[in-house]
Structures are given as structure tokens and as C-alpha cells.
Amino acid sequence: MSKEMNNRQAYFNYYIEDKYVAGIVLLGTEVKSIREGKVSFNDAYCLFDKNELWLRGLYIAEYKLGTTNNHIAVHDRKLLLTQRELKRIQAKMKERGFTLVPLRIFFNEKSLVKVEIGLARGKKVHDKRDSLREKDIKREISRALK
């Protein structure tokens, strides 16, 4: 099962310094919706609360065959990392300009849902223009080679 959802806007808006793979606490209907690809990263970010890492703003659509046990589409979800990783991330977050953003959601080889989060620094407007220019150049080169 190679179902994978990427956050393309994160790579456009941020420089990604480090990446971490975290487990996520989900309900059964949330997993079924992720299998269907009903995930949106708009306005999603990570934050620390009482030395725990939470994912806020991730939209997972309600499961269409769910009954009264269906989940709420947008709520805080706990991320699971080791204490060492959490402390390392917290130390980096205290530096000015860093934020944590979800980069992708995927199923690992044991069919568990994992979230790749990135320690990111925001890009300026001119950096975004450079990214678009580089992307256009790569596209033109690939077209010329075909």
C-alpha cells in the first residue's frame, strides 16, 4: 500500500532543515479516510504543549460510511516521537524563525500511519520567485530531452 499524501506548499513556503518521522494517534474512521486520500494540509502546523507534540489544523474528511462513531474533521492530533527527538526539536524551535510543518502522510510497511514533519525556516518573496524560476528551467530541460 503506497498511498502517500504530500504537502507541496510546505516546500514552496519554507526551507526544510531537518525531517522527522512520527507516529500519529488516530481513530479508525480517520485511518479509513486517509486510505481514500481525503487529507488536506492547508493551515496545518505542529506545536508543543506540556512537552508533547501536537498536529493542529490537519483536515481529514469524515468517512462517508461512518456512523455515529465518525470523527471530527479538524481537531488536534498527538504525534508520537521519542523523548530525545522531542528535546532536540524543542531546542531548535527556541531559535528564531523555526517552525514545524507536516510534509507528508504515508503508510509504513506495517500499514501504520506515519507523518513526516519538517523543521522549517520561512522563505522570503524573492526566494519563492527563485524556486519558481528553477522549477520552470527544470521543466524546460526535461521537455527538450524528450
Rank of each mutant, 00 (worst) to 15 (best):
K3P: 06
E116K: 06
Y15V: 11
D76Q: 08
I141M: 10
N69K: 15
T99N: 10
L55H: 00
G122L: 07
Q83E: 12
L81G: 02
K123P: 08
G28K: 04
K124L: 14
L86R: 02
L79G: 02
L55I: 01
D43V: 10
E62W: 07
S142E: 14
S142Q: 12
K128S: 09
K123V: 06
S2R: 14
I141R: 11
Y15S: 15
V113W: 04
Y15K: 13
E85A: 02
L65F: 14
S2H: 11
E4C: 10
R96N: 14
C46Q: 05
D127T: 08
V25R: 08
S142P: 09
E62P: 11
I105W: 02
G118M: 02
F48K: 00
M1Q: 13
L80E: 05
H71T: 03
D130H: 14
L132H: 07
G23C: 04
F98G: 01
F12K: 11
K64G: 08
K19L: 07
E85G: 00
N51W: 12
D127P: 05
V74E: 06
L132F: 12
P102A: 07
E116W: 03
A10W: 01
F48R: 02
S131W: 04
V115M: 02
A73T: 05
L65Y: 13
A73D: 09
N42Y: 03
A10H: 03
I105K: 02
H75C: 12
C46K: 01
L26I: 03
K146C: 09
G28P: 04
I137P: 08
K128A: 09
D136T: 15
M93R: 04
D49N: 12
D18L: 11
L132W: 03
K64W: 10
Y11R: 08
A91E: 13
L86G: 00
L145E: 12
Y59L: 15
I34Y: 01
L58Q: 00
K50Q: 14
R129W: 13
L79N: 00
A120D: 10
S33C: 09
R143L: 13
E62Q: 15
M5F: 07
I117D: 02
E109P: 10
R143C: 11
L53E: 03
K32E: 08
E30I: 03
